[in-house]
């Protein structure tokens, strides 16, 4: 350990604080998912369930649509993540490495979809989807999610690409590499942390999206997890224990996924690059 003791204490102290802030409401959700219905709302509230129960998890796993929707969500989130990554990589490379007329306009245009209030675009978007005959299909939702995922993916990847010294690419081109070759052999490997960040973003965002899924996927063969959460609510009641249990089932896989991917946040990929 190269750091002196005092700075290690500081790092651990802040890490503990960070973890506490992030986990505090989450712990409350875990506790709630283990409580019986009648214990959920008590005054004073209790941190420890009196009769811890897994019945909420049983409800979610065996007598709700959550397992089926989980599958749908995986397909849709993976699909839209892959598509937006593919589109964004090319677009960002174009924005980061080339000057051309109308670049600023094109870059702002990418953001337009996010500047329109959701409430304003739902109806015409539905019409567009119907016109393409994509209502109630995986592809329809995957496409619609481009409005949400592309702006950030393009903008972030552009800034990550810009951080890579252009000299590295120029050297390769002098050695006879094509533009595509440069992009795939040099730029992408060097921006791996950025790609991970954008992938996680696209996945998380589509995983949790509610209003588009609600309006564009009305058949249970394409409904996603957030709709499953809404199904625990009836007119005058919500099965909060089940909602919390289902939220755990929605949240933990993504956190674990990130745990396995965070190793790819490696520094020093370009050590020495600036000296050359």
């Amino acid at each position: 350990m190269r750091a002196p003791l005092s700075s290690r204490i500081v790092v651990y102290g802040f890490s503990a604080l960070l973890a506490a802030v992030c986990l505090f409401p989450f712990l409350w959700m875990i506790v709630s998912s283990l409580k019986e219905l009648r214990e959920l709302y008590t005054i004073p509230p209790s941190w420890i369930p009196q009769n811890p129960t897994l019945s909420n998890y049983a409800t979610v796993l065996f007598s709700s649509n959550i397992p089926r929707y989980f599958l749908n969500s995986v397909v849709i989130s993976l699909g839209s993540t892959a598509l937006s990554l593919a589109l964004a990589i090319f677009a960002s490379y174009g924005f980061a490495r080339f000057r051309f007329r109308g670049k600023a306009a094109a870059q702002s245009f990418v953001l337009v979809g996010q500047l329109l209030p959701t409430a304003a675009i739902i109806v015409p978007l539905f019409v567009t989807l119907r016109w393409l005959d994509l209502v109630n299909t995986y592809l329809g939702l995957i496409l619609v999610y481009m409005i949400i995922t592309l702006p950030l993916s393009v903008w972030m990847l552009t800034s990550y690409f810009k951080a890579i010294p252009v000299e590295l690419e120029e050297a390769a081109i002098i050695d006879g590499a094509s533009r595509m070759g440069v992009l795939f052999r040099i730029t992408l490997p060097l921006s791996l942390p950025g790609l991970v960040a954008v992938t996680v973003y696209a996945f998380v965002t589509t995983w949790n999206e509610f209003i588009f899924a609600l309006c564009f996927a009305t058949d249970s063969s394409v409904k996603t997890l957030p709709i499953g959460l809404a199904e625990f609510t009836t007119e005058f009641n919500t099965d909060w224990g089940a909602v919390m249990a289902a939220s755990m089932i929605m949240t933990l896989p993504v956190a674990l996924l990130f745990l396995s991917m965070q190793r790819l946040f490696i520094g020093g990929l370009m050590a020495g690059a600036t000296k050359g």
């Binding site: 739902i122 109806v123 015409p124 539905f126 019409v127 119907r130 209502v135 509610f210 209003i211 609600l214 309006c215 009305t218 058949d219 249970s220 709709i227 809404a230 199904e231 609510t233 009836t234 007119e235």
Partner: peptide, 21 residues
Amino acid sequence: LEITTTNGLPERILTTLQSGA
């Protein structure tokens, strides 16, 4: 039979009514 959820029901019905589907 298609089952609707209470959360977001007015939005979903309005969207479908207005978009002709």
